Simulated scan of single mutants.
Amino acid sequence: MYSTRGIEAIATVTELRSRTSALIDQAAGLETGIMIQKNNEPVAVLVGYSKYMELYELEKKTRAKAKKK
């Protein structure tokens, strides 16, 4: 078994293929995104753009701090 680490929703690759637009709309409104499973294993997380940018900026700051050490 794997940890969902706070993921609010789970979808399969098949669901992603058939409900892409609806899942994108749903992900945009979630704080943690939607875990995508393939063969019952987690393979990706679909997050809204604003959440992605938040994570991107956090990663940039973390890398900058690590370089200073």
Rank of each mutant, 00 (worst) to 15 (best):
L58V: 05
L16Q: 02
N39R: 15
M35Q: 12
R5T: 09
A44P: 07
I36G: 05
L16H: 01
S18F: 15
A64P: 01
E8S: 14
I24K: 09
R5Q: 14
E57F: 13
M53V: 12
M1H: 10
E31W: 05
A27L: 01
N39F: 08
A9Y: 08
V47N: 00
T12C: 08
V45M: 05
L30K: 01
L55K: 09
G33M: 01
A66N: 10
R17E: 11
A64Y: 15
R63H: 09
Q37W: 01
A44L: 15
V45P: 00
N40I: 05
T32S: 10
A9K: 10
Y2R: 06
S3L: 14
Y52A: 11
G48T: 08
G33R: 00
M1E: 12
K67F: 13
I34P: 07
Y52F: 15
K68V: 14
N39G: 10
L46K: 01
I34D: 07
L58I: 11
S3N: 08
V45H: 00
E15Q: 13
A22G: 03
L23W: 03
L16R: 04
K51M: 09
K67S: 10
T12A: 04
K61Y: 06
E59D: 09
G33E: 02
K68D: 15
R19G: 03
R63W: 08
L23P: 05
T12K: 11
K61E: 15
L55C: 08
A22L: 07
G33V: 06
M53K: 15
S50V: 11
M53E: 12
V43W: 03
Q37S: 02
E57Q: 11
S21F: 12
Y2L: 05
E59A: 12
Y49I: 12
I10D: 00
S3R: 12
K69V: 10
A66K: 14
K68S: 12
Y52G: 00
Y49P: 02
E57G: 00
Y2S: 12
K61S: 11
V47F: 00
E8F: 02
A64V: 05
A64H: 11
A27G: 11
R17I: 11
D25H: 14
K65W: 06
A11W: 06
I36F: 02
A11C: 02
S50K: 15
T14D: 14
T20C: 08
I7E: 03
Y2H: 14
T12F: 03
A28L: 09
A9G: 00
T4C: 04
K65F: 08
K65C: 06
A22P: 00
T20W: 08
I7G: 06
S18P: 04
Y52S: 03
M35H: 02
G48K: 01
N39I: 04
K69L: 14
E15D: 12
K61T: 07
V13M: 13
S50F: 12
Y52Q: 01
P42K: 02
A44C: 03
E15K: 15
T4F: 05
N40L: 14
Y2P: 10
D25A: 12
K68R: 13
L23C: 05
I34E: 01
R17V: 13
N40R: 13
T32G: 09
V45K: 00
E41C: 07
G6H: 01
I7H: 05
E54P: 01
G6I: 05
A28N: 14
E15L: 10
L46T: 06
